[in-house]
Design a protein around this nucleic acid. Structure first.
Lengths: 154, 154
DNA sequence: ATCTTTGCAAACTTTTTGCACCAAT
DNA sequence: ATTGGTGCAAAAAGTTTGCAAAGAT
């Protein structure tokens, strides 16, 4: 497992994924291509709305609901995942870039953490309780260094 | 049902809390008393709606929005906390009973886990990133023994 | 020709809010 | 008499859905 931050520069080949879509009886549309390419070229996480915005620069007519549907389709194919960084909107990213997230409740800043951060806990949950946890689905929430909770001693 | 269950039998004195409410300039109403007693006598976690239902047996006119406002007030006083067991509604419980939760995405079953389960990770987040995490705010989601994800080998 | 996707509008779910009235101090 | 709480209805916020038209195969 990689240490901290070697973002495995997009090994996702868009056409390959679209072929996968086709293989599953889906159709390759410009909306899908655009959503996919928005995710591939994004360095960070994008909300559905942000994906829509990115898509709009080239394809102004792609509706937000189409983005949602496309993201869901790609998620079913295992290409995309979403995380909840807090209470609001979900964030989407390529599934190959799994990692943990720590999101500051105040400023919204997101720290990315190694994917295996909870492997001990995951093992314990499985062994002791038979529970198979998807530990990447929710971020750690809290306060980053600059937004320390009140009353907290630096 | 749960495995290790050292539920520290309700040490919360309702009148004491109500006194605290008053001390903070709040008023003691029957709605507040009822919400509080619903939480104290609940062995499990309750959604706002479930709290409302419990309250309704004695006070049918307490509105759901009042329940929300009361829960928020009690949360501010540090008496109550809420957790997100998954995508839907939040669950509320007494703050003195902090613990972790593992919630099955399929059947909804919730396992309670020791509060210190992530203390190592919390320490690491703080030391390495200055991030103060509130690790109890989101549950672990996944699949319990009887609802194993498809394709999973037992 | 067929079957999937899309745009749009409308529904949905959970929680919050504005406001006039009511109640606790 | 104050101030804060409550019921109600309506708004928010994020996501989903029904449907007829458009598009991919």
């Amino acid at each position: 497992m990689p240490a901290h931050h070697d973002a495995p520069a997009a090994t996702v080949d868009i056409d390959e994924v679209l072929e996968l879509v086709r293989a599953h009886g889906g159709r390759v549309t410009s909306a899908r291509r655009a959503v996919l390419s928005a995710l591939v070229s994004a360095d960070a996480h994008l909300t559905a709305e942000e994906v829509a915005q990115a898509v709009h620069s080239d394809h102004p007519d792609v509706h937000l609901s189409t983005v949602y549907r496309t993201l869901e389709a790609l998620e079913q194919l295992g290409v995309v995942t979403h995380v909840h960084l807090g209470h609001g909107k979900a964030s989407y990213h390529l599934a190959e870039r799994v990692h943990h997230h720590a999101a500051c409740e105040v400023c919204g800043h997101v720290i990315e953490l190694p994917a295996d951060l909870l492997s001990d806990v995951v093992r314990e949950l499985k062994e002791r309780h038979g529970f198979v946890a998807d530990v990447h689905h929710f971020a750690f929430v809290g306060h980053c260094t600059t937004c320390l909770p009140e009353g907290h001693i630096r």
